[in-house]
Amino acid sequence: MALLPLPDPSPTAALVRSSVLISQGAEAKVYRTTLHTGGGPVLLKYRFSKQYRHATLDATLTRARVAGEARALVRCLRCGVSVPGLRFVDVANGALGIEWVDGKSVRSLLGSGDEGERYREEDEDIAPAEDEDLFVGYKVPKDALMVMVGTEIAKMHLADIIHGDLTTSNMMLRHPSSTMNPLGVHQLVLIDFGLAYTSTLAEDKAVDLYVLERAFASTHPESEPLFSSVLDAYKRKMGKEWPAIGRKLEDVRLRGRKRSMVG
């Protein structure tokens, strides 16, 4: 077997160069790529090196975050939470290849006013609905979509996984005709587990919900009825776990996300 000559010291760097940039954040750049000829699209999340951090610290943090995100996704998969699977991990270079989700973010489906979208959408031929109750090409009423959001978050919390950054941009509705959707129905997929961790505490689950409530309030007009349908579906799915989380949510609403007043 012969593997030489390598054109580039880092194959992952070469992969990144051949990929299409979709979105850039402070932590990572997100690309659409293919891992080999004939392969389907894969989302490549590349945590580029941060010049403002000491190199050793940067490598340690990047490694921990890539590993953490990968573990959270697999934990979700095993518990039946709808998340994309992993396709490629290069922890040394901070690269994570994730199953491509063919669909639109909940944020773009709800129509988010005039703010720029955080994720550029594929499927340009399917226009997002502005103020209709049925989304063009998706045909899911807003209320049904909110029920899906609440149910999926409840499944995640029942598995003791805290997302850490719940926003409507971090949820996608997978198109029923997508080839990676064998069930043939609309599927709500949670994405971006970069800040996820595990916890059994009602407090942490309540903070997760509070972050989403604030995200709704700041991005969507008339968010209150939307978020209350999310919460209703969440309560139904959580069953006897809900009262403790509900009490904590009241506390968190009064004092904000941070429990400790230190620092």
């Binding site: 490694r63 573990r71 697999v74 039946g80 992993l86």
Partner: peptide, 18 residues
């Protein structure tokens, strides 16, 4: 089968950090 496939493929991908 679809779910198990997605899980075992993910296991293979993340073996270096499991």
């Amino acid at each position: 089968h679809h779910l198990i496939d997605n899980i075992v493929v993910s296991f293979v991908a993340m073996k270096s950090v499991s």
